[in-house]
Structures are given as structure tokens and as C-alpha cells.
Design a protein around this nucleic acid. Structure first.
Lengths: 140, 140
DNA sequence: GAAATTTTATTAGCCGACTAATTAATTTTT
DNA sequence: AAAAATTAATTAGTCGGCTAATAAAATTTC
């Protein structure tokens, strides 16, 4: 039997919770909930994407994102426009408020990134990302 | 501005979702939901812990764990016993079914660990864990 | 062109996670 | 000993995530 506490998985679970807590602390004051940061990021990259396109990029079910979008529309972070050509689809856009919210997300991500990698050399950071990239590919 | 897609944070978010999906696929058929695996693990380590002790170890709010416990008691994975001395507390125990469930968790964790680290040398695995340990300490 | 299939999105219902408020019991303080 | 403060746990309400079922529209197929 392996030593669980020393496994990669255990470490990743812990870091995941720590990151979530930190992110929450930095973003909740701006009315942004966990998970919404990624949606803001993808919309900032390309505005006006469909629900299904966003769900795929976020590795999340359409149902999840559909509800999230409606809540964010309600607080005016996003706008949802029904498709003219294909009436099944709906395209999602950032409002001005949403674009501002993304700036807070970017700040928070930078803060967490700096805190996370404190004390690591450039080479160590590079190596860590390389190894995690391999892990991610292994899991995809 | 940094390249977000190449950041440590982005990688960790992706891996987190991938791991969650994989874990879910392996454990849902045994009636174990995401997050419950860790609770089973800590109880397997030390049976009869209190709600607050478990919450602290799991880096989670007592409210979260309190509800989780009740659901798992309902499906007979756990047993909850009110404290005799200190009547505020409640101690939580694994049932036989719960102990069996933990075996499935251990199997799933091993499977995911193997898949995650496929192609990595012993030295690389060691280095990855060392670096992630630093990250975890930085975030705590 | 009509029927069958596929695709897009939503809704309902569940679980994990959070905060805030509450209850109950124990400790401290006075 | 009584009052005040602290601690343990639960409850209510919200959001992110999931699955399953549904509705609606577009494509395929016949």
C-alpha cells in the first residue's frame, strides 16, 4: 500500500482547495463566484460564444454553464442574445461591468500565481509546468 | 500581460476538472460522490472523529461536512454517535459498507495516480511532488 | 416533402461548497 | 452561583457541478 499523503493526487486535492479558498477571498468582494472567473476569461478571449462552445472549453456540462450564465445575466455581468439564423443557439456577451469584472479576475490570478510560485527559480517554474502539462495530457 | 494559458494556475484548474471527472466516473457506480472520497479516507485513517476535526483536516466548513455526513448516514456508509461527555459533539464512524466503499476509493486513487504519472521517471515524479509541496506551503 | 434523427439549450433534482444565523452546551469571567 | 463568552454542530439559502428528461429547432434520411 502506497503512502497516500505523499501521492500526487493528495497534493493536487489540497492545492485545489487552497486555490479555491484564495480565489474566493479575492473575488467574492467583487460579486464573482468560484467558477465564474473562467467563464469571464473565455468571453474576454472571444466575445459572443455559444453556450455549448463555452461548455466544451470549460470542461463542464451545458446545464452547468446555462444556469451560471442566467445568474450572471441577472447581475448584469453578461448579456445573452438568441441566434437569428440558428434559433436553437444563444450567444453570450460581456457587458461593460463584465469586462471590468474580468480585470479583477486577472489581478486575482496574478496574485495567486505569484504567491504559489514564491521561492521557485525560473527553471523550477518551467519544470513544474512542463511536468503538469504531461499530467494533464495523461488525463485527457 | 502574461500568457494565462501557460500559467500554473490555468494548468491546475484544468487538471482539477480532469481529476474530478475521472474520479466521478470511477466512483459514482459505487454510490460515492465527489468529495466523499476524502471523508472516507480520513475516517479510515482514524475512526470516530468529530465533525469539526474532520472539517479542519478536509479544509472545509463544518456546515459542508455536516450535511455530507447526514447523507452518507442515510445510505448507511457512516454512523453518527452523539458525544456522552461533551453533548455538543458528535463522533462519526465507518460502517462495514463504508469500509468497503473506502476500498473502492483507494483503487480509484491508484488508478488515477498511475494514469496521471504515466511516462514520468521516478526522478520526475519526485521532483513534481517536491515542487507541488512548495506550492502548497506557499498557499497555506 | 414528411418522418426520423441529431443538435442546442433549458429545467428539475441531486450533491459539494460557501456564508450567515441559530441552537445548544461548555467555559470563563465576574 | 450567575452572566458572559466561546465552542460544536445544524439549518437556511446561495452557487458550481452533475445526470436525466424535456423542448425546440435544424439536419438527415427516406
Amino acid at each position: 500500500m502506497r503512502n497516500t499523503e505523499d501521492s500526487l493526487g493528495y497534493l493536487l486535492i489540497q492545492i485545489g482547495k487552497q486555490r479555491r479558498t484564495k480565489s474566493n477571498a479575492l473575488l467574492s468582494e467583487h460579486g464573482i463566484h468560484a467558477g465564474q472567473d473562467l467563464l469571464l476569461y473565455y468571453l474576454n478571449q472571444e466575445d459572443g460564444q455559444t453556450v455549448s462552445a463555452l461548455a466544451e472549453k470549460m470542461n463542464v456540462q451545458p446545464a452547468t454553464i446555462s444556469n451560471m450564465i442566467d445568474r450572471m445575466v441577472a447581475v448584469e455581468l453578461l448579456e445573452k442574445v438568441k441566434g437569428k439564423i440558428d434559433k436553437r443557439t444563444a450567444r453570450v456577451y460581456l457587458t461593460y461591468k463584465g469586462r471590468e469584472a474580468f480585470n479583477h479576475v486577472a489581478d486575482a490570478w496574478n496574485t495567486i500565481e505569484d504567491k504559489s510560485t514564491k521561492g521557485l527559480s525560473v527553471i523550477e517554474k518551467f519544470m513544474l509546468k512542463r511536468l503538469l502539462n504531461t499530467v494533464s495530457k495523461n488525463l485527457s
